[in-house]
Design a protein around this nucleic acid. Sequence first.
DNA 1: GCGGATCAC
DNA 2: TATGGTGATCCGC
Length: 817
Amino acid sequence: MDSTKEKNGSYKDDLLLRMGLNDNKAGMEGLDKDKINKIIMEATKGSRFYGNELKKEKQVNQRIENMMQQKAQITSQQLRKAQLQVDRYAMELEQSRDLNNTIVHIDMDAFYAAVEMRDNPELKDKPIAVGSMSMLVKEILADYDPNFLAMSLDEAYLNITKHLQERQNWPEDKRKYFIKTGNPLENDKPRKEVNKLREHERSISPLLFDDSPPDLQSQGNPLQGNSEEEDNPQTLQNSIVFGTSAEEVVKEIRFRIEQKTTLTASAGIAPNTMLAKVCSDKNKPNGQYQVLPNRQAVMDFIKDLPIRKVSGIGKVTEKMLKALGIITCTELYQQRALLSLLFSETSWHHFLHISLGLGSTHLARDGERKSMSVERTFSEISKAEEQYNLCQELCSELAQDLQKEGLKGRTVTIKLKNVNFEVKTRASTVSSVVSTTEEIFAIAKELLRTEIDADFPHPLRLRLMGVRLSSFPNEEDKRHQQRSIIGFLQAGNQSQSAPGCILEKTDKDQFLKSLEMSHKKSFFDKKRSERNWSHQDTFKCEAVDKQSLQTSHSFQVLKKKMNENLKTSENSNNSQIFTCPICFREQRSISLEAFNKHVDACLDGPSISGISSVFSHSHASSTEVNKKENVYPSFSQSEKQDYETHQRNSEINFIELPETEDNPAKAESVDALSDKHSKEECASLPSKPFNIEKCCQNSSSTVSLEDIASLSRQESSQPYLQALVCPVCNLEQKTSDLTLFNVHVDVCLNKGIIQELRKDKVNLANQPRENTKSTDNSGRVQKTATKPKRPGLMTKYSASKKTKPNNSRHTLDVFFK
DNA sequence: GCGGATCAC
DNA sequence: TATGGTGATCCGC
């Protein structure tokens, strides 16, 4: 099998070749692993990027090797059975083949336009309307399909089936366009006034219509015919008349696009999107191609088509299939039974569609977006403080983008790429939606901190950082949340209904504005802004009554998560010491039910304010140590000290008060404010009580400390600021925003659980936690009575050998390495 | 839900 | 010479 030869030689391939890694058969077995690693390390010295490329290549080769092993175990009996099943499905697909639609894929030749610009300096003076596909929306494409689908700035699908029907009866002047060379923006509609076409401009105008595939010339529509003299479209003086066939329509579209933008486009015409897309690539740039809507034409087109040309078949899939001797769609079809045994159902279904020339015949509108993110590459950043600053910067950018679309989500993901190009993502999902810089950063920061801590005392040497928000609520979720809020308000009204502490919208807007201003200067612009991470003095105030706290989302999930946590540890058959999140007393060797009862009792028992007092008394040092011992049970004393010192040094307040020029007295104001609050004042909720309902209702609107500080200057005795004790970390959180507080609790919960889980993993599996990836599925293939789920494209066909035991001492090293 | 991986543009 | 940013999806866990 010579299928492993790479066609496009590069430095990387050259390296791989020399290493023997490019050959699957030689692969892992032919070479001693240490030797390979050594070679990789040497390559890495030259370029970290290529070192990582080699590593990835190695992984793919491993997948291929595993796939081949799997293939070798397939019996002819299995293959025959699979053949029957696959062919039955293929039959169904064939019967549902739909050739009645005419799909067009338009692709702007942006790249080629740029090249042309470069080569023709004279063009630079011509006005170029660089518009997006969605602009050509409205302007041109909608004339042919009001529901056309803009895939990106330079790509769109149209279903012109209906237009074609209507067009058959159109008189000629409705298909007539004048060539205009003046302002390209105005020559859009037919029968516009004629502009003189100057000779030199005509000469530099690219030829539009010299690209029809030969087979189409004879098979075109009746109107296109074979009138010897006239090519279609008819060019009469300064005007062009387009015909009524699909091909003519697309020429017309491309003509109008070029007239409007001076940029050329390529297009594909076919009975479905998959084929149309491939077609548009066929005569690029500035050309078009059609696959006629009959089965034979489709199959002829597909026959020798390399699978890599098809959207969705990328580099890796190509390589894996190549290893099976599959390069063209014909071969893809021939191997369909085998593929159904080696790939997931999703994958082989996709393959079968491709090999039959099938694709989507309607343009499915993209649903709502599912995530939003920002990420940035930079030269190495290793200082934790700078990393946190950067993280906050990114959160701020993301929050602004989110605000533009009015989005809020529950999952925050950070992405880290180190200088070796190794990518990590870490996610945390909270119970209620977040959207502001502060909320997102509160979560992202903890994720980042966990990673920084994990590598301590080595710094994270980052070259990229990203922040993403996802888990946007759907309509159903929103309705549910609405109900919850109403329920909450009703419940809350019974206990405390006095209005007050309601920050006007204008205040909040002002705050948001000032926040934006403070983030205007980019992290990269100012290189490194000295942010003040210092601790803020806290004050005690247990104004939140038990009911409110129990109703909060975070508290709702607290028990649930603790349950999950406990289950995990029970499953692990480990005698666990659990700290009750309410009373913070250790619960030793108890059952899940008992623990639940205990938590319930705590919740129902003494008031939260009472509990808070307990927290306040106990949290100082002992709880802190206890918690850490729970998490890292086998720490040596020196390690623990190191770690705790590090913790203290890297400790960052839940709420930061960015130092801004316009409010230098802020810190003092807050302190002054806090001094004015006695515990009694807060607890009894005097004239203007903290309005917890309002805060929940506006759960996304951040009430800032800045607001509070400025307000406090006006009315010095208003208790806007609350010090709530987080039931998980047991630290006071000074905030006026319940959402932020909830986020904090969620983060604490998640963090605790992650650490517990990691501990369990390390202890139980007794295996090193590799830095970036866990390469072993340890062969736990689902051998169940039901149909086993086969690995898909993404499957790591990892070997089922190994599992080397390690002592726990080692595991800890790995854990923190 | 999380994390790695693949893919498209 | 040095190697992007954004969004989606799949898969195994």
